[in-house]
């Protein structure tokens, strides 16, 4: 069969006009110059020691053994994992909750959806500054706590080592939940209403309908949300940089902020590249599954 059909398809395959070839090659070369080539260099630099002036000096796995004994690296790695779990878990759960609440078409729904979605269009820097004012010692949060008699809970939220990390997560969540909600809203819209009717006829409760109809039907959206969240978590940089620069005493340090300050402020470019490789390894699983799904999609 294959042998028989091949000759019939071949003429079409060989008749790709040169212009079309250029159409594909030019963007590919642009991406190669700005992404693929730099990425290869990034992996190479991870095995060197480099100050950016003299030539990079190969150190084998030296940067990675340094990491093992680097307390800041361990803090940053722990915070990054905690960020993945907290930021990722909460934005998925709350985004789904918001989508379930706002899924029915009824009067006023557009306003509610827009309200939750609005922060998504703010830059993370603007988001950070919006919240920075609220976190100040005389800011809204402390004033509200005082007003409701919880004055003992007041903090200098961003300056306190025990709260800074969580104070940085909240603005990031405020911005991410609306995004996840939109993804889930589209997923919920795609569920056949007959499935719910059938479940109701069978006497399924609201919870059972959610558990046995909604969740299984959302499995493909869940996969998308998972990849979006992991990729966004590992990229989180702006909000931390704008609020705390990873401080105080590295308590809100993420791998992304540590990598940036190591590379561009301490000018330890080799070690910074090695930190970037760690971020890449953390993201790799998700990138691979995303690509496998895309591959199926494209076939």
């Amino acid at each position: 069969m294959a042998v028989l059909t091949m000759p019939r398809r071949r003429p079409g395959a060989t008749r790709v006009p040169p212009l079309v070839l250029a159409f594909v090659l030019v963007p590919l070369l642009v991406e190669a110059a700005w992404v693929f080539w730099p990425a290869l260099q990034g992996f190479y630099l991870a095995f060197t020691s480099w100050d950016g002036l003299a030539a990079p000096r190969s150190v084998g796995f030296g940067n990675f053994t340094t990491m093992v004994h680097d307390p800041v690296f361990r803090t940053a790695l722990g915070n990054t994992v905690l960020w993945l779990l907290l930021f990722g878990g909460l934005s998925a759960a709350l985004g789904l909750g918001a989508a379930l609440l706002l899924q029915q078409e009824r009067r006023g729904i557009g306003f509610y959806r827009a309200a939750l979605f609005l922060p998504v269009v703010f830059s993370l820097v603007a988001t950070a500054l919006v919240w920075q004012g609220m976190y100040q010692p005389d800011g809204l949060i402390n004033q509200v706590l005082r007003a409701v008699g919880l004055g003992g809970w007041q903090h200098a939220w961003l300056a306190d080592q025990s709260t800074a990390f969580y104070a940085v997560i909240v603005p990031a969540l405020w911005r991410e939940i609306g995004y996840v909600m939109v993804l889930y809203l589209a997923g919920l819209k795609g569920i056949d209403p007959q499935l719910y009717e059938a479940a109701r006829v069978d006497g399924a409760s609201r919870w059972q309908q959610f558990r046995h109809v909604t969740l299984p039907q959302l499995s493909s959206v869940n996969a998308v949300v998972l990849s979006v969240i992991v990729i966004d978590s590992l990229r989180s940089f702006d909000v931390v940089w704008a609020l705390t620069r990873g401080g105080p005493y590295h308590s809100s340090e993420l791998l992304s902020t540590y990598m940036y300050s190591t590379a561009f402020q301490s000018l330890r470019l080799g070690y910074g590249s090695a930190l970037a490789v760690v971020i890449f390894v953390l993201a790799f699983g998700v990138i691979a599954t995303y690509l496998v799904r895309a591959f199926k999609e494209a076939s």
């Binding site: 590992l234 561009f264 971020i279």
Partner: peptide, 9 residues
Amino acid sequence: LPPQILLIP
């Protein structure tokens, strides 16, 4: 790709 791997290069 995480942008961090590209920043220095």
